[in-house]
């Protein structure tokens, strides 16, 4: 939610009057650290996808394809990744590092 409603703007009983508006609520905004993935180290094993509690590991095209290796790797979905760090903990190759949002 980008615009925060005042007391005068809240619906009765804080009801939500627009169907499907949950789509606009990006829980990724709760994140403090994000999982930075090094595509060169990713072996596309999918373990991070299995463990991610928010279904936020997404198959992504490699920017620098490696001959003989799958063309995709797993990156994260910034809209819903809450930065729990489970993927970084579970990745067998150490491809994921947790980086503080906004850090230089």
């Amino acid at each position: 939610m980008n615009v925060k409603p005042s007391t005068r703007e809240l619906a009765l009983g804080a009801a939500i009057l627009t169907p499907g508006s949950a789509r606009e609520y990006h829980t990724g905004g709760w994140r403090t650290f994000y999982p930075k993935t090094d595509e060169a180290l990713c072996i596309t094993c999918g373990l991070c996808w299995i463990f991610c509690p928010d279904a936020c590991r997404v198959i992504t095209k490699r920017e620098n394809p490696i001959p003989g290796v799958l063309p995709d790797y797993y990156d994260f979905n910034p809209d819903y990744c809450k930065g729990c760090g489970i993927c970084a903990q579970e990745c067998p190759t150490g491809a994921i590092r947790m980086i503080e949002e906004g850090a230089p």
Partner: peptide, 11 residues
């Protein structure tokens, strides 16, 4: 409409 939804800290 949704009645009784989540009300996060900002509302």
């Amino acid at each position: 409409i949704s009645m009784g939804p989540v009300g996060p800290p900002d509302i």
